[in-house]
Amino acid sequence: MHSHARAVAARTHAAVHAHRSRADDVYDQLKRDVAEFRLVPGDRLTEHEVSERLGVSRTPVRQALYRLQQEGFVEVLFRSGWRVLPFDFDRFEQLYDLRMVLETTAVQRICAGDSRVDQALLEQLAAIWLVPAAARSGDAAQVAAWDEAFHCALVAAAGNAEMARVHREVTERIRIIRRLDFTKQPRIAATYDEHARILKAVQRRRGDQAVLLLRAHIETSQAEVRKITLHQVHLARAGAG
């Protein structure tokens, strides 16, 4: 009897885990669709359409959409499915402010020689960003991904896991804005130049200089957020297609 109960419990656990995994997969895919402009503000979708497209049942789709609703990506429409929400620029501004605090604090700790600093992470960043101009990538999607990784690694290198976790959450929420920024080719070259200057200041333990450079770098990106129009988003979708 006990062994039968354990077997049932194990099967139930496995079913719940598989179910949760499918919901997680749908959630991740829909967030990618938003970040890569396959879904843009104002687009409507139904649970049936998403389940057909992704080849899953409607239950994990519904779970994923409710999770995205809680995070401010979509809203439910009465009897007519779901809609991707317009950009909340006030929220983006607040997230950029939080990002500024986390990243400048991390850089200060790194430059102060905190014993928890992960030097290997900093060396990995140097291998990507401190390269000759001829070795730079011109692939906007690749550089956008590396840009995210650069800022996440800077915070992670400071050795505070909770700071790194909060920073990753902020990064996810502003991803679409940063991807839009990288649809403009001059931003790629500027990102290489700015990241290189920040890294060199960090390597030399020049904390004040590193913070000033990082602050200017983030403020430039934040200023671009204020210029974004829905027209740009639709152009980006056309380009992604």
Rank of each mutant, 00 (worst) to 15 (best):
Q70L: 14
V16C: 06
E36N: 13
H48M: 09
R99V: 11
L77G: 05
D118I: 03
E75V: 08
E93F: 05
H48Y: 05
V61W: 08
Y27F: 10
V131D: 13
D118Q: 06
A23K: 06
L39C: 06
D90G: 08
A106E: 11
Q119Y: 06
L54S: 00
A64G: 00
S21D: 11
M100R: 15
E123R: 13
T59V: 08
R62P: 01
A18Y: 09
D97P: 08
R58C: 02
F37K: 07
A35D: 15
R109K: 14
A112P: 04
Q119G: 06
E75G: 12
T104G: 11
E75Y: 05
P41Q: 13
G42A: 04
V107T: 08
L77P: 00
L95G: 01
L30C: 01
F92E: 05
E103T: 12
T104K: 13
L85K: 12
A127S: 14
E93H: 05
C111A: 09
A134Q: 12
F89Q: 12
R79K: 08
G81K: 06
R20G: 14
R91P: 00
A112K: 01
V143W: 12
F78E: 03
L95N: 00
E52G: 03
D24C: 09
G42D: 04
L121G: 15
T104F: 13
W82G: 03
V16A: 15
V117L: 09
A64H: 01
V61I: 08
Q63W: 08
V107W: 00
V107M: 10
E93W: 07
C111Q: 04
R83S: 10
C111V: 06
L65Y: 04
L95S: 05
Q94A: 15
A106R: 12
L54N: 02
